[in-house]
Amino acid sequence: MSNLLIIVFALVSLATLLAVYRIVKGPTISDRAVGLDTATTITTAMIVLFSQIFHRAIYLDVALVYAVLAFLGVIALARYLEGGV
């Protein structure tokens, strides 16, 4: 793991921490949903970063499936917030 990857990983981890802070603190439930949306996108990027760190291409498939499931989860959460079915 080179120095550049350590810096990159620290920055991405800090971004995730800030998103989790918004999820915990957020005054309304929409703030929490926005924090969750941001955290899922950052996590997709982080899984791709894992494949760069460990030189394994299999993590790319994990990232793709995670992106699909996170998108479905956020859409379902938005439908719930709106009061629809």
Partner: peptide
């Protein structure tokens, strides 16, 4: 594979943010 992942993020991220914005405005 990375091109497929980034294309998917490029397509789905605006959709989910639009749904969230619409839901919170209607709320």
């Amino acid at each position: 594979k990375t091109a497929i992942i980034s294309l998917f993020i490029l397509l789905t991220n605006p959709v989910s943010s639009h749904a969230l914005a619409r839901a919170s405005h209607n709320k």
